[in-house]
């Protein structure tokens, strides 16, 4: 939290704000091109509810997808590495998102950019 900038009027702590003017959607666009089904996600949370990894960790594919969509790549690598690739989410997803392909694409693109 940035407490130093005490200003009047409307300010939002930089850390909290999703700054779409600054955000880069490069990762989202790349993933989208390779796995268009990322666009179908309606954030219902079925994937996160059924997730084998979520029993032991705070992994949430729903959140991960939103982060990619919003251009938030910080900490994404560590997040995506939690997935066991078991495929339960793919069976459960009501929108037919190819979740495993999506995870692989995010993985691969993060590897390439070294983030």
């Amino acid at each position: 939290m940035n407490e130093k900038k005490l200003a009047f009027g409307y300010t939002v702590s930089k850390d909290r704000q999703i700054d779409f003017d600054e955000a880069s959607l490069e990762l989202y666009n790349k993933v989208c091109a390779a796995e268009p089904s990322i666009r179908l996600c309606i954030s219902c949370g079925t994937c996160a509810a059924t997730c084998s990894a979520a029993k032991f960790s705070d992994f949430s594919l729903r959140k991960l997808i939103l982060q990619v969509r919003r251009g938030i790549t910080k900490g994404l690598q560590a997040e995506v590495s939690k997935c066991m690739l078991c495929g339960k989410c793919q069976l459960a997803c009501p929108r037919g998102v190819s979740t495993r392909a999506l995870i692989m694409q995010i993985n691969m693109n993060l590897q390439k950019t070294g983030k």
Partner: peptide
């Protein structure tokens, strides 16, 4: 060959 470098430590497992 393509995926071997993807790191998955699974350190969260009990």
């Amino acid at each position: 060959l393509e995926n071997q470098s993807i790191d998955k430590p699974f350190s969260y497992l009990p």
